[in-house]
Amino acid sequence: MSLVTDAFVSQIAAVEPWPENAALYQPLKSEQVLLSDNASCLAVQAFLKMCNLPVQVVCRANAEYMSPSGKVPFIHVGNQVISELGPIVQFVKAKGHSLSDGLDEVQRAEMKAYMELVNNMLLTAELYIQWCDEATLEEITQPRYSFPYSWPLNYFLVFQRKWEIKRKMKAIGWATKTLEQVFEDVDQCCQALSQRLGTQPYFFNKQPTELDALVFGHLFTILTTQLTNDELQEKVKNYSNLIAFCRRIEQHYFEDHDSSISSSTKLSKGPTLP
């Protein structure tokens, strides 16, 4: 989003309160959504719940193509459409809801840094496993990604996306990594998060921030998604405080006050945490 629209958005946003009919669009849950997309969608849902902003989750097979940036999820609020966590956080902040206001400067810098760590390592690892590991690609990614399309579009779109991801991996130096090394990176990242969390309930003590939402989105998705093998899950399961952290957010924000039906069906459908 550009600065001009940013300024525009924040002006308008400040005036209008959060509407009742706000909607969050994401791909179909049971048939289509992939690991990385599910993580991003869950992160945004968790963030909005932490802000106590009601949003209706709408699943669309073509959500990816509806989104202004080509990435899911995106929210439709009033007459605004905003995609991805970063811009959504800014937008919500302009509306007067912020989770990170209580932090001092150093903490805010650290929060941003850890968010980039998650994006840089967990998200990239998820993409790698999804698109560059042949077994996962064939068994999971290919049928799920091409679910809404018929022949020959299904092959073409999968091929196109795979090629794009592979080029990206090459550009950031991940193309030469083996699956083992990627798991090691995930482990390193989880270790860092676990160290940072320590025994606190949230990353910055009592109050959740957008970092908590992001970490929850990724770790919860990894923990509850069945892949071709369990190695990725096992890496996360080594850290008991991260599992407790996921369970805490799940119970606190997704279970007791079931404001939106779709999120509770999602959780009943997905396996719960061990």
Partner: peptide, 18 residues
């Protein structure tokens, strides 16, 4: 410390991404 090691990783990611 372990926490500082974690911070190192996080800030390196910040540099690379931003």
């Amino acid at each position: 410390s372990a926490k500082q090691g974690a911070d190192t990783l996080a800030f390196i990611s910040l540099l690379e991404e931003k």
